[in-house]
Nucleic acid binder design. Sequence first.
DNA 1: CATGAATGAGGTTTCATTCAT
DNA 2: GATGAATGAAACCTCATTCAT
Lengths: 205, 205, 205, 205
Amino acid sequence: MTATDGETRNKLLKAARKEFIDKGYMNASLRSICKDAGVTTGALYFFFKDKDELFAEVVSKPLLAIRKVLSEHIEFEQREYSKGYDEESSEGPDVEVSIEIAKIMFKYKEECVLLLTKSAGSSLEFAKDSFVDSLEQSYRITTDKIAEVEGCRKVDDYTVHYITHMQVESFIYLLTHSKDINEALAELPYIIKYIRGGWFAVMGL
Amino acid sequence: MTATDGETRNKLLKAARKEFIDKGYMNASLRSICKDAGVTTGALYFFFKDKDELFAEVVSKPLLAIRKVLSEHIEFEQREYSKGYDEESSEGPDVEVSIEIAKIMFKYKEECVLLLTKSAGSSLEFAKDSFVDSLEQSYRITTDKIAEVEGCRKVDDYTVHYITHMQVESFIYLLTHSKDINEALAELPYIIKYIRGGWFAVMGL
Amino acid sequence: MTATDGETRNKLLKAARKEFIDKGYMNASLRSICKDAGVTTGALYFFFKDKDELFAEVVSKPLLAIRKVLSEHIEFEQREYSKGYDEESSEGPDVEVSIEIAKIMFKYKEECVLLLTKSAGSSLEFAKDSFVDSLEQSYRITTDKIAEVEGCRKVDDYTVHYITHMQVESFIYLLTHSKDINEALAELPYIIKYIRGGWFAVMGL
Amino acid sequence: MTATDGETRNKLLKAARKEFIDKGYMNASLRSICKDAGVTTGALYFFFKDKDELFAEVVSKPLLAIRKVLSEHIEFEQREYSKGYDEESSEGPDVEVSIEIAKIMFKYKEECVLLLTKSAGSSLEFAKDSFVDSLEQSYRITTDKIAEVEGCRKVDDYTVHYITHMQVESFIYLLTHSKDINEALAELPYIIKYIRGGWFAVMGL
DNA sequence: CATGAATGAGGTTTCATTCAT
DNA sequence: GATGAATGAAACCTCATTCAT
């Protein structure tokens, strides 16, 4: 009965994915997951420390990918910022990073919805806030850069936080209201237009 | 010992309010609520059909108030729309209804946060979506009116829905990020500026 | 099915008594207890907070009785001590308190064996040490009194502690090696003789 | 990677020693032991039949050593007894054997505490009683010898058993209340004085 | 020698709900 | 109006042990 490959583990992950997505972290039942996977509870606890770790494993791929994109983006912004103003870059990266994140999110659509809207109770329930914080760092730099160039007033922290929050909510909106990446990418321009409009208004441009 | 004045019911509601706000609908324990209220479970079930009804009662005041404001606003918009264009109203009502709703939300701040962010599992977990839908009706009319007046293209349904969604998320943001109504009202202009900026951008104005 | 008297509670206590005595605190199974009592686990948790409280309830009668005797005895000794030396009292109380405790212990023989030898894991696992400490206070006074009267050297704390410990172990010995109180009382004189012999030897009398 | 020198076995024994001493037989977890030893459960079961055998192995050295001393001592006493009275030996061996046992116990202090106070659930949970029984044989002979010589009445079996039990409890007391062998040896005289005092009192000397 | 996988029963505890009184 | 008792299912998790490889 022993599986040399990760068969049982994969069956567990698959069943867990389904259960978590259906019911959210809290209401998911490990018993159901095991039954669905055709495995005993002991097996589950051989592969995963507890419910939380199982959940983390289910959403790990997009989580790591998004974290990577965000941290690299922040690093890039900071490097650019210290190098001084580069006119062309001012419009680019933000959109690019958004598209990159959107791609990841749609590649792992259900996992992301799970992580961002149904993770309450798990140790990842604040992953969304963490995303907001990361993006905020980047936006803080961007707005300062623009303010410098355009000679307009700096945007206060409260507003930057709000804007970033709305940005992340927009991602979630896209995820939960689009069938697939194509539909999402079709709508993205409108969303970007809206966000930029709001942004410029706030900056007084 | 019999309370003719609904004393027990009030104690239960008060205890339930606290428990639901602390732990959310799912993780709230009726046992804890009863203990906190100094009452037995039987008493709870005399006054409330089940957990769900108890929850509904806790959030009923702001829920009804907001619904009323929204439905009256929609009615008003529709009446105005059929009457033909009224130049002055084009900027007004939207802000007014937002402020009215904000007032209700801050009057029942914790109940609203509960309803909008911690109601998962209850029959009101989609109250937020319901708000979005109501506001959307109103916004559909408003954007059409403006498009007509300004001679620009109509905003598609998808975008209207998105904008409305963001509007509601902004309410939630205000609720969860401001200490009180005063702090919220101080920040409101920036949020309104952002939202209007986005809106105009989307409409191509 | 509702029991107006404490029928279910008593059935639970009875079943718990048996299970705890048979297997000790740790290895006792609440499931077994409930099954034995013909009751569901929920019922158990209606009457008792948790396993620990159930255990405490099972051994509460002798526990409280012994604590009472000990504290009253210590109070008595302290009163006597401050009143100055009373020749006749020097031999009496210690034996009397021992007999009183022995009576309690044999009245609740199995509960006491449970408490003193099978309580590991529960919050009462150090009840034995607590008994030793109480007795030690009393013995500290007694030995000082005798030393004063007889003009011999004071017994050091280490030895008093050891002697007290042996005294308590003797109680446990009596409990676990005698069928009933009569057999125990028949043997008690030998034990007292042994203990007194040791005591006097240590004091150099 | 194959260890010809029993490396894995030793790592397991070391980890087991720690776990058993920390938590006692019952609450020790084989899983924890294996993890601590950096080895899988399969390996454990290659070297040891089950939890019980692993435990027995951990305490085997002092167990065997004490058994040897006791059986040799009994043999010696019996030989001496059949040879008739030897005046000088009447005081000696008992103390000597006690000291010998104390040495073993302090050499394997933690193992002995484990064996004598935390072995419940294992097949060695009655090792203490077994020690008592062995010592009792020896004491039976010694007291008879003394009674014969001194012309006083024989001590009854009940009392001999009790005295022996107290003797073993004293060993345990020393083990659990002394930091090291030196502190124990310093206290030993008082304990011996106490025990002898009790003994003589019981014999009516 | 040793691994890694899996079993399956069992552990304590919490839950919303019901109902006779 | 309200109590107190009881249900029964389900929750997460740990255990010693086995065995094919």
